[in-house]
């Protein structure tokens, strides 16, 4: 196995020991409480609301992990000086960066997988006993496989946010990394607007700058197909594949950037 894979497994183990997965308990409680409450309050809309709520919660909980664990991935190693004995071993600095990143991706994967199972379980519980003629009136079936497309894109979005956090964490303090990552995430939600900037501004320099930022910053809105899936609108596989390719390219660029910055860093 590659040194990066050992670092990844150690990072995953650290997440487990640091009780990162406790968020799953909160997620489960939220989901069960919401389903019980919504089941009482709404008629026929409960499945749709639960899908909406649970996908949003998956994204939000994952985002918290991606940002707050992500910013500590490298900076914690450096601040606590555990990087000293580690880099005296036959481990390249780039392998440390890649291993740390893959470790957190594994943590997020387990997290999202458990959440997905919980969502399907709650939806199965809600749909149970509902007559078929009522179910046919729903926008999408309760156990709609298209939910997996939305969840896959959420996971890719989290992987991209983690790469942004890792990039900043490779040379900056945790606080600054958190601010930068959160800032990039928020801007990334509205990135598509930058492309249309020439519609409201005529100055060529401003338009060129907006276009440049559009290509430089991640377009996080691409990953959000929650509304379409909940309302039963089709999400083409080609779109998911193109978004996955976009995410992979962006992640590769960020991880390479993080490795390059980390490679020449002095640990004073």
């Amino acid at each position: 196995m590659h040194a990066a894979s050992f670092v990844a497994l150690a990072t995953f183990r650290e997440s487990v020991r640091d009780r990162v997965f406790y968020n799953l308990v909160l997620f489960a409680v939220l989901l069960v409480a919401a389903s019980l409450l919504i089941g009482q309050l709404t008629a026929g809309q409960d499945v749709k609301i639960i899908k909406d709520l649970s996908l949003a919660a998956t994204s939000l909980f994952g985002l918290c992990i991606a940002i707050f664990v992500g910013i500590g991935l490298v900076s914690k190693e450096v601040d606590r000086r555990s990087v000293y004995p580690l880099l005296a071993k036959p481990v390249r600095r780039s392998e440390l960066i890649v291993g740390k990143y893959l470790g957190l991706l594994l943590t997020l994967l387990v997290n999202v997988a458990v959440m997905t199972a919980a969502i399907y379980l709650v939806l199965f519980y809600l749909a149970r006993g509902v007559p078929p003629n009522i179910q046919q009136a729903w926008d999408a079936p309760a156990l709609d496989p298209a939910l997996l497309k939305a969840i896959a894109l959420i996971y890719l979005e989290l992987a991209t946010v983690t790469a942004v956090a890792l990039f900043f964490s490779s040379y900056s303090s945790p606080l600054l990394s958190a601010i930068f990552t959160l800032g990039i995430y928020v801007i990334g939600q509205f990135n598509a607007d930058l492309k249309q900037f020439d519609r409201i501004v005529s100055a060529p320099a401003a338009v060129a700058l907006a276009k440049g930022l559009y290509y430089l910053l991640p377009d996080f809105a691409r990953f959000d197909v929650k509304l379409a899936v909940v309302h039963g609108q089709p999400v083409p596989v080609a779109y998911v594949a193109a978004t996955a390719a976009y995410a992979l390219l962006y992640i590769a660029a960020l991880v390479c950037g993080a490795a390059a910055l980390f490679a020449r860093r002095d640990f004073k």
């Binding site: 150690a10 183990r13 650290e14 020991r17 640091d18 606590r80 000086r81 555990s82 000293y84 004995p85 005296a88």
Partner: peptide
């Protein structure tokens, strides 16, 4: 290599 005042993963 033993660093000065070493710190290791405390988990």
């Amino acid at each position: 290599y033993l660093p000065e005042n070493p710190y290791f993963y405390d988990h």
